[in-house]
Deep mutational scan, measured.
Amino acid sequence: KELVSALYDYQEKSPREVTMKKGDILTLLNSTNKDWWKVEVNGRQGFVPAAYVKKL
């Protein structure tokens, strides 16, 4: 599985998104959309802005 690192804090703005803190390591589930990537963090799945994470 592919991992990404959070470059910035992000506070979810809808139920489809997830909150992350800078430095968090997230499991990348889907990166086909260039703007929003689906990740899993702390057992929750949702979307984060692609520009806020980088692949490890």
Rank of each mutant, 00 (worst) to 15 (best):
Y52I: 07
Y52M: 13
G43Q: 06
Y8A: 11
Q11T: 14
I25E: 04
P49N: 03
V4N: 02
D9H: 06
V53P: 00
T19M: 04
L28E: 00
G43P: 01
A50V: 06
N33V: 05
D35A: 11
S31H: 09
L56I: 14
G43T: 05
E12Q: 14
L26E: 00
E12C: 14
P49R: 04
K21M: 10
Y52E: 02
E17S: 08
K34E: 11
V53C: 14
M20C: 07
D35K: 14
A50F: 03
V18Q: 03
Q11Y: 15
D24L: 05
V48S: 01
R16Q: 13
L7I: 12
A6K: 01
I25W: 05
R16H: 13
F47M: 08
V48K: 01
S5Q: 15
D24Q: 14
Y10N: 01
V53I: 10
T19F: 05
L7V: 09
R16W: 15
G46C: 03
E40M: 09
K22I: 07
R44L: 07
V18R: 02
N42L: 08
S31D: 15
K55D: 06
V41I: 15
K22W: 04
M20Y: 02
A51N: 12
G43V: 02
A6I: 02
Y10P: 00
D35I: 15
K13T: 13
P49G: 02
V18P: 01
K38P: 02
Y8S: 09
M20Q: 01
E17Q: 13
D9K: 03
G46Y: 04
N30H: 08
D24E: 11
K34I: 10
V41W: 07
S31E: 14
N30Y: 08
V18E: 01
L28C: 06
W37H: 03
K21C: 11
W36I: 03
G23N: 07
V4T: 05
K1R: 14
Q45D: 06
I25M: 08
V18G: 01
K21H: 10
R44M: 08
D35C: 15
L28A: 02
K54H: 11
N30P: 03
L56C: 13
L7M: 10
D35T: 14
A51G: 12
N30R: 07
Q11C: 13
N42G: 12
I25N: 04
Y52P: 00
